[in-house]
Nucleic acid binder design. Structure first.
Lengths: 200, 200
DNA sequence: GTCTATATTGCGATAGAC
DNA sequence: GTCTATCGCAATATAGAC
């Protein structure tokens, strides 16, 4: 019945680290949540930090997969490539409900995990969006005066912030009004509409 | 030469808590950064948590002021009221460079400061944007199919995320390309353009 | 591979002198 | 109001039995 303590630790660690920050979670807490012994963390991952890094890598798995698939899609029109990113955000949050909060926590309060893990993936995503925007501007599809670097951040912000603000949003909106798919599709529509070159 | 230990503590606490999270900062560290004694934290604020709350309140000061000024402006056209929020975000970040990161940290990993401080201010800002959007839709200025609650989150996201992502952005963009004002003005333009009712 | 027991360090908070 | 010294506790990590 001893499933896989390594995996159980990683899976128990994600919600704890995501909701309480790295420093606020104790090894005792992690072990207990995983149904494991305190010493198991050191044995399997060499300590709290090692478990944290391994958990982060696990969270990024779907992103890494998506990025590989996505490389082959540079022939798609720019707007569709941006749409691909939008559905990636929604899809990833479904498969890894804690990833976005973990990444945001690393952005606001970087730990060693930022250098070790997060920094590997973000630039790839950045470049993917950047390139799509560049081509869209060159093709006359998006506004020619667009600052592309800043526009990348805008897209990431409008899509991601919702998943971080969700707990707060639940208190501000009727429960019915919160659908991930609905949010992402409307936010992406606003953004795309906003960067489009106006019809003469 | 003993300025004001209370204030020195609050000002030293802001960057530490913002960059390392509440749990990761020690009282010893706080006192040292403020040039004060360890015991001063307990003496003036009753402990680390008390100092944290007081610091949060201090950070929200410009927001509280702005919200009062803003109440009198419900006669402005909706798009201008949204613009007011955009310049509020930019202005506040200039006066209180750590506020947005602190709020984001409270959103991703709430501490007692969330209930005690953050929760007082966010709903007021939410309502302000919500109302402007509502009126803009009613006036036929914004898209009639807009989900207003979700659109509030989109505006907050597109404007705020940049200030959280800045450290990462500095590594991805040429240093020259990072101007707060430029970001906020472009992001707001994208958003406003995106929610506008299309010309027939 | 998993456990208990423990070594060691650093924490937050305060008593009491000044 | 500020200091030093210290208490009591919880933290991470590991040694060694099983």
């Amino acid at each position: 019945m001893e499933k896989d303590t390594r995996l159980k630790l990683i899976e128990a660690a994600a919600p704890l680290f995501a909701q309480k920050s790295f420093a606020a979670v104790s090894v005792r807490e992690l072990a207990q949540a995983a149904g494991a012994n305190i010493a198991a963390v050191s044995y399997h991952y060499g300590g709290k930090e090692g478990l944290y890094h391994a958990m982060l890598e696990y969270q990024f798995e779907p992103i890494a997969e998506a990025l590989e698939r996505i490389q082959t899609m540079s022939s798609l029109p720019p707007a569709e490539r941006l749409g691909l990113y939008a559905s990636l955000v929604a899809g990833v949050h479904h498969r890894r409900p804690y990833l976005l909060r973990l990444v945001h926590a690393e952005l606001t309060s970087p730990t060693s995990g930022f250098e070790a893990v997060v920094k590997k993936y973000i630039p790839q995503i950045f470049r993917f969006i950047h390139q799509a925007l560049e081509e869209g501007v060159a093709a006359g599809e998006f506004r020619p005066d667009l600052d592309i670097g800043l526009a990348v951040i805008s897209l990431a912000g409008i899509l991601n912030f919702y998943f971080v603000a969700k707990p707060m949003a639940r208190q501000l909106l009727p429960a019915s009004g919160l659908s991930d798919e609905k949010y992402v599709s409307q936010a992406f529509a606003i953004y795309l509409n906003g960067i489009r070159r106006e019809k003469p």
